[in-house]
Amino acid sequence: MALNTPQITPTKKITVRAIGEELPRGDYQRCPQCDMLFSLPEINSHQSAYCPRCQAKIRDGRDWSLTRLAAMAFTMLLLMPFAWGEPLLHIWLLGIRIDANVMQGIWQMTKQGDAITGSMVFFCVIGAPLILVTSIAYLWFGNRLGMNLRPVLLMLERLKEWVMLDIYLVGIGVASIKVQDYAHIQAGVGLFSFVALVILTTVTLSHLNVEELWERFYPQRPATRRDEKLRVCLGCHFTGYPDQRGRCPRCHIPLRLRRRHSLQKCWAALLASIVLLLPANLLPISIIYLNGGRQEDTILSGIMSLASSNIAVAGIVFIASILVPFTKVIVMFTLLLSIHFKCQQGLRTRILLLRMVTWIGRWSMLDLFVISLTMSLINRDQILAFTMGPAAFYFGAAVILTILAVEWLDSRLLWDAHESGNARFDD
């Protein structure tokens, strides 16, 4: 018995066209964080690309023209004298008006014999932002004059995390709450300039795509075929072959399989920071003279006294001054041990922890910024005066060393310790 099946006739004509040209192939790229070699397709503007294995951002879609970056830099340069030299806060102490600005706080630190601690604050609040705007201006002028731009481009990517104007702005709020127990506070004209400078700096850093600047100024022929001998440069993120001198053909720094002496430098910085954190938390970090009496505060006791007036601000200072430094030390110690013992479990967790400490590390400088600003506000000789204690130097040095330890660690070593050939990683 035959089955009668109805015929289905399409209502619209289906047209099949042959592909007349070869589909576009992607360029081969190595991930600078996990060293995976993959094919990167062509990316349009405002599109980002991520590593298929570790999800690290390979290409950032946010990109401004150099002219727009230069305009932002010149605007920031105009704001800087007002943000640093004009009063941020006014207080009335014992019937006398006192003005506080950024430069005055750094000068008070240096004047009291601790120039190293003052230079830490100076670099993060004044030096690094000033280098940022002058570097962008150098790129703008240098591109037109045919100057060598490689050193500036190499420095810009590392400079971003040292620009800490946003953290200093939080420190202004913390210092205001600490001082309000002794005097009446009012915002100064410099505060508005400083807030504007923070906003412009944040926007500029978020749109400063150094890798795209490398592509514009020093374009290189990408690798179009897969080759395990391809290496990625950690300076400019170019994937290719080393030249005859073993250097990256684009930025001219040595092109090595792994960062040289990464573990040794990381261990040295980490152990030194552990040693410095002990006096930083045991010795007094601030000293207040009130009517001839002397009151010393460690980091913890200062947080407890701050909690009596504002528990939320005390929580912020606790996280930045105690929780973050010790968390960074514990995480980095764990990561280094996992590399030495070739741990194969929990790779995803370790990668996330490394990215976390990379982002939060700079916030530990908050305590030094609060001390710097408070020193310029309260300084009335023996009637009422505020000065920093010996722990300030140890704390600042420990924070900087932990930042350097994270920067010096080559994250690809975590993958080397893991089993080879993993296309995915999980716990």
Rank of each mutant, 00 (worst) to 15 (best):
L3R: 08
M375R: 05
R17M: 08
I58E: 03
W140T: 15
T349C: 11
S420L: 12
M76L: 09
V313F: 04
L94Y: 01
A196I: 15
I58G: 03
T201R: 15
V170S: 15
D63G: 13
Q104H: 11
P6E: 07
L77N: 07
N209V: 09
G361R: 01
G173W: 01
A397N: 04
F217L: 15
A83G: 05
I403W: 01
A397E: 05
A405Y: 06
Y28F: 10
V399N: 05
T224I: 14
R380H: 03
P249T: 11
A70P: 07
K328E: 00
G146F: 03
M147K: 05
Q47P: 04
V133N: 03
F318A: 10
Y182N: 07
Q382M: 12
V163I: 13
E86K: 03
Q220F: 12
G118P: 04
L255E: 09
I131Y: 01
R150Y: 05
L354C: 13
R412V: 00
P52D: 04
R25F: 08
L300R: 02
E22C: 08
G26C: 07
Y394K: 01
G315V: 14
T349K: 14
W408L: 04
C124A: 09
T134D: 04
C54R: 00
L159K: 01
L93F: 03
V179W: 00
R226P: 14
D410E: 04
S65I: 02
L156M: 09
A280F: 02
R245I: 11
M72R: 01
P129E: 09
V133W: 03
R259N: 13
L413S: 08
I371T: 00
R62Y: 11
M80D: 06
M388L: 03
D297I: 04
L384R: 00
Q47I: 10
L263K: 10
E211I: 15
E157A: 14
R362I: 04
V406D: 00
A314N: 00
S206F: 15
L132D: 02
F38H: 04
L89F: 03
A280I: 05
Q345R: 13
L278E: 10
W408I: 04
M375H: 03
A18N: 07
Q108V: 09
A187C: 11
L373S: 04
D426A: 04
A385H: 03
R150A: 04
I360C: 08
E211D: 14
L208S: 12
L205T: 14
M1V: 01
H418V: 13
V152T: 11
Q180S: 13
S45F: 08
C124E: 03
C31V: 00
F82E: 06
M80R: 00
K265N: 09
L323W: 06
D297A: 08
V198Y: 15
A73L: 11
D227T: 15
Y289P: 01
M304K: 13
A83K: 02
T349W: 12
N379E: 02
L153K: 02
G396S: 04
R150E: 03
P52N: 06
K229P: 13
I185A: 02
L69M: 07
S338T: 10
A128R: 00
L169M: 11
L276F: 14
P10V: 07
G235E: 07
L347Y: 13
L409E: 01
I8L: 07
I91V: 05
T117K: 06
L154A: 03
G95Y: 05
G240Q: 11
D166A: 15
V313E: 00
L283S: 10
T11C: 07
R68Q: 04
L208E: 08
G113T: 11
T358W: 11
K12W: 05
G142P: 01
R348Q: 12
A128T: 14
R256F: 08
A405S: 10
S48C: 09
R256A: 11
L149G: 10
A196Q: 09
H261A: 12
R260L: 06
Q264M: 03
D227V: 15
E296S: 11
Y241F: 13
R25S: 10
P32M: 05
I14K: 09
E22R: 06
V406Q: 10
G346V: 14
W359L: 11
R294W: 03
V195L: 14
I303L: 15
T202F: 15
E161N: 10
P249L: 10
P222D: 14
R17C: 11
S262Q: 05
A423D: 15
E296F: 15
I303Y: 06
G171Q: 05
T15I: 07
R245V: 12
Q220W: 09
M155T: 07
P41M: 07
R221M: 14
L89P: 00
F369A: 03
L230H: 10
L94I: 06
L169G: 06
S45K: 10
F341M: 11
D416F: 11
K160D: 10
A70S: 12
P10H: 09
L409Y: 08
A314H: 04
R221G: 14
I58C: 04
G361F: 05
R294F: 03
G173L: 11
G20F: 05
R362E: 05
L205F: 10
G142V: 06
I311S: 11
I167Y: 03
A312G: 13
N148W: 03
S305Q: 10
Q108N: 05
L191G: 08
L401C: 08
